[in-house]
Each structure stands twice: as structure tokens, then as C-alpha cells.
Design a protein around this nucleic acid. Sequence first.
RNA 1: CGGGGUGUAGCGCAGUCUGGUUAGCGCGCCUGCUUUGGGAGCAGGAUGUCGGAGGUUCGAAUCCUCUCACCCCGACCA
Length: 520
Amino acid sequence: MSQSDSDKGKQQGGGARAGEGRSAGRPATSGQSDKITARTEDFAAWYQDVIRQGDLAEAAEVVKGAMVIKPHGYAIWEKIQADLDRRFKETGHKNAYFPLLIPESFLRREAEHVEGFSPELAVVTIGGGKTLEEPYVIRPTSETIIGHFFARWIESWRDLPLLINQWANVVRWELRTRLFLRTTEFLWQEGHTAHATAEEARAETLRMLGVYADFAESVMAMPVIQGRKTQAEKFAGAVHSFAIEAMMQNGLALQAGTSHDLGQNFGKAFNVRFQNKDKELDYVWQTSWGVSTRLIGGLIMSHSDDQGLVLPPRLAPIHVVIVPIYRSDEERAAVLEQAQRLATDLRAQRLAGQALSVEVDDREGYKPGFKYFHWEQRGVPLRLELGPRDLAAGQAVCKRRDAAAKQTLPLAGLPERVLAELEAMQRELLDRARQRLREHTVLANSFEELAAILEPASAEQGGGKFVMVHLKDDAACDAKIKELKASVRCLPLVDAHDGPGKCIITGEPVAQRAVVAKAY
RNA sequence: CGGGGUGUAGCGCAGUCUGGUUAGCGCGCCUGCUUUGGGAGCAGGAUGUCGGAGGUUCGAAUCCUCUCACCCCGACCA
């Protein structure tokens, strides 16, 4: 531990190492980027390097723990938003917007909620130069203020279910931040619904969890485990919390989305009542669910490699880049003309209903090799190289971002072939991630066995594992797991293992195994 | 909040211990020419409140005092 501490300090501080390594261009034949740390060397440094070289974001160093999402990173967020928003609309939700500032007293109405969020609140105490009578908190989440308005909007069973979603920013005063994974301010969506019965609310909670899981797998190519959080890990104010858990390339877990069954907790706190068909007044049953810009962190750590970002085609802002190669002006004119024609044909193709986004990199003064690296670092799924030799032969050279080798393809029928490659890449990224998840999931039948698997060293070397253990849902058991610097990630909704067993800590019988892992 | 570290050009750093020309180096950037099938070469050029304030001194990036910010490690978290 102390060894890695001092190494970090050196790199951060007076270390000339990083600077030297990045100065002179390495021979192009080395195949290893000189600007990106290898995953096996230092996974955290690799992650930062991929973000920098991929031009996704940077730390907003003037605001503690905040980040600037740069255009390329924001374009990915926009793709995520567009797809999720469509799914929310299809499930009957409507978008709305509630205030950023929430009266402090609102937070206090729900005891668990205020206890959970107090440590990370940013509070506004002065407005217009005057001390406010009641401070406002900057929303860490919106259950309270939405509860307040739901109480005004809901009168009868005819107003239910009420299905609302909000796209917003939130602020949580985090002590330790990492780009995308945990920042003081982040972007997310928060769904908030109100229902007439507990069963309906529970069904909604699970329905939206399923929406997240399907999105993660089919669009992000990131396999997830759907599960219930332990009572110790649940959202402050929820009856039950559910999550999708993904595994990063180093074997660490990432909670990629959450869905909460709030029961009547907020209904009671904010007096959200409705008159049912029996003319009785009852509190509504609520849910809330969210995913955030953290998904981009998960995306990076799921697929990217030592050359930089790798994007699944369905989330790539640019699907195909065409790099023209030429010497003379005559060659340039001929190659560019063919490149533009090809781009036009490619744009007529549709991937998951969306027209292909194609860019011709006709910048002058950069050699082709420079452009290859440029777009590879940004994760563009497919590159086409087009030069005089190709024109003469009626072909193009094709390089898939996730493949080692180039292939030569005839121009005739190329758009269809490109589309097929993109579809294959989307599929194969998911397959590879699934295989990784499978291979790094193991069983343990005792605390000692679990501890051995989760040994600090093995996780730091990229050997993180999901360990399936029988464990009682009890705060004391969660605490015991924390001693291993790991946590109970979830109790899977689908038990893919061997059913009931005895808790490895208490020895009591439990219904199924839980996922235990080190996590972000 | 505890422990550690760093603030010098857009980025990465040297210079600080031992005060003294015009504060350097690499990358990047700008201009020109030659290049262009895997990170181009040469020539020329622009860019600094040395984190801030105060002090010591003939003289401060360098010494002293105070202060601010950020980063890393831990306890908390989408």
C-alpha cells in the first residue's frame, strides 16, 4: 500500500518520468501508444489517459471535484439520453423539470433521507446579498421537492399512476472524485412515479430496472446483473433499492443504475394522498430511479484498450471515418471525390434506426498515420483508408477499432458491408464483456475463502472478482464484508447458482448467494 | 476531517537546497518550404502577474511569515 502511495506521489509531483515518456514520439511500429498508460501497469492512470486522449472531459480545476464534459464526451451523453428518453416515453413517462434549489426543511421531513444526504449537501445561505430566512440546498436528488408538488397534483385514483422523469444536474459534496465515476456535480435523469398500490409501485421499480438492464446490454454492450441492494446499501428513504451492477475490465464492480421502491415513506412525509375507489384517503406508493454520466465511465472501462477509447457503434457519435491518402493535387482531388461519394452512400445506411454518422478527414498537413491514431483514441468504431492504389483497384482498406488486422474490401457493396461490420462489432463487444464477467465470477463458501479471493493485491493488479457467497441481509454482515474493502453489490434477481445455503458469517440459512466485490 | 504531495508558458517539467545576466527544456501552437499507405522534417516565431499577500535584501521563482487552491491516500457515496 505504502509502495503504491509513494509511486502515485512521485507521478503527481516532481516525477520527470511521465513527462519524459510522453515527449518524444515513439516509433510507429511499436503498436503501443506512448500517451496512454497500459492497463496492466496502472488501471487508474490508464482510465485518466483514455479520457484525456479521447477528448471526453477534463477536471474543472477551478471548481473542486467538478468536471468539464467536452464536446466529444457530451455527444456520447446525448446518445445515451436520446435512447433512454425514447424508452421512458415508450413506458408512458413524461418529462418535467423541478427547481435546483430545495428548501432545507424539505430534506428533514424524511428521517432516513436527511441522515443519508446531510454529509454531502451544498447549501445556499445568501441570496441577493441577504442572509436567507431558510437556506436552500442544491438538489442531491429530488424526491423531496417532487413529493411536495405531487401532493398538490394528486387528488384521486384517477390521477394515478403519475409517471414523471426529469433530466437534470445534481450536486453531492464528495470527498473523493474521479472523472465521470464520481464528481461533485453530475448529470442524470431521475424518474419519479406515484401509484395506488404497493404492488404497482414494486412492478414499476422492477420494470425500470429492466429498462436499464436492456439499455446497458443492447446499447452500451455492457452486461449487468440485476439485483436488490442489501438494507445497509439501499437508498436513504427507500423501502428497497435495486441496481444493475457491471464489471469493469479490472474486475471491479460499478453500480450503473438504481431503481428504488419508496413505499409510502415520501408519501407520508409530504402528505401525498389520493382518494381511492372506496372513497378512502390513502398515501401514494412511489418509486424513483436514475442513471447518470457515470455510465460513460462504465462504458470506458468496459471496452477501451491500451490504444484508447473503444465505443460500441450504437453510442458512437461518429461511426465511420474515412482517411484519404494522396501525394499530388491530382491524386488528392480524385481520392477526395471518391471519399465524399462513399460517405454519402454510407450515410444512407441505418444502424438501429439511426443514419450512419460519417466523417471524411480531409485536414491538410497531417499524415495519414497521425489521423489513424487521432480517431482511434476517440473510439471511432470503423475507419476506411482510401488512396490512389485503392481507387485503381476499386477497393478500400477497412480497420475495425476492436480488431487487430485491417482488411481490404471492394467498393462495390461497401456500405452494406460496413453496416454489417458495425453490427458485428456491437455484438462482439457484448460477447467479450459477457465472457469476462463469467470468467471473473467465482463462488466462495466461507469468509476465509472470500477474503483470500479479494486480497488487496489481486484487485489492484486487475484481478478483481465477483464472488458469489451465501450472506444474510444484515447490517452486521455488510460491515464484516467492508473489512475486506469490498461490499455486497446485490442479491441477484435471477439466481444463476445453487439456491439456498448457509450465511458465511452467521451460519443462518439464506435463500441464495449475493454478489460481493470491490467496487468504484 | 486525518496523512502525504504540488503550485513556474496551453500541457508535462527543470531551476529553489547554495538569492545575482534577458527564467529555461520537451510537447503543443503560429508562419514558410519540403512531405503524406501507421504519430513527418527543416527553418523561423509567439506565449510567463514564477498560486496570492506581506516581509528580509542593493537584488527574491529561490530565504522567512501568513494565506489560497488543486491532486493523491484513508473514512462516506450514483
